Amino acid sequence: MDKQTQIELEAAAFRRLRKHLMEDRTDVQNIDMMNLAGFCRNCLSRWYQEAANERGIDMDKNEAREIYYGMTMAEWKENYQTEATPAQQDAFKVSFAENVGDKS
């Protein structure tokens, strides 16, 4: 497979992942994704921002999130985000400590 085809396939897979998370599974909360997979929609938008910045494109966190989410964070939160339960918060603390090596 040539490099350009690989890039196009990777981009298509990313677009499909974005659609899946932003349109098909809006019921899945970011905290659940973080607890289970160690990344969430915000991570994906940050990676997008970092890729842009590496290529000399000036993009801040809010711009990247709006591009990734297809709306502002305020709109996303209003439409889809629910309050994290104590159990979700506890699981996040454990997951975060395990992922960064901090057991405190």
Rank of each mutant, 00 (worst) to 15 (best):
M1S: 12
K3M: 15
K3Y: 13
T5C: 12
Q6K: 15
Q6E: 11
A11K: 13
A12R: 13
A13D: 03
F14W: 05
R15H: 07
R16S: 05
L17T: 05
R18E: 02
R18C: 02
R18I: 04
H20I: 13
H20G: 08
L21I: 10
M22Q: 11
T26I: 13
V28E: 06
V28A: 07
Q29R: 03
D32E: 08
D32P: 03
M34Q: 01
M34E: 00
M34P: 00
N35S: 01
L36G: 06
A37W: 10
A37S: 08
A37L: 13
A37H: 08
F39I: 01
C40W: 02
R41G: 00
R41T: 01
R41Y: 01
E50P: 03
A52N: 04
A52Y: 03
N53D: 03
E54P: 04
E54H: 07
G56Y: 07
I57R: 10
I57Q: 10
D60F: 06
D60C: 11
K61V: 09
E63L: 14
E63S: 14
A64C: 02
R65M: 14
I67T: 11
Y68R: 09
Y69Q: 07
Y69N: 08
G70W: 11
G70L: 13
T72P: 06
T72R: 11
T72Q: 09
M73G: 05
E75A: 15
E78K: 15
N79R: 15
Y80N: 07
Y80L: 11
T82Q: 14
E83H: 08
A84E: 06
A84F: 04
T85I: 05
P86K: 03
A87R: 11
Q88F: 02
Q89C: 12
A91T: 01
F92H: 02
K93W: 00
F96C: 02
E98F: 02
N99T: 07
G101F: 00
G101T: 00
S104Y: 09
S104W: 11
S104Q: 10
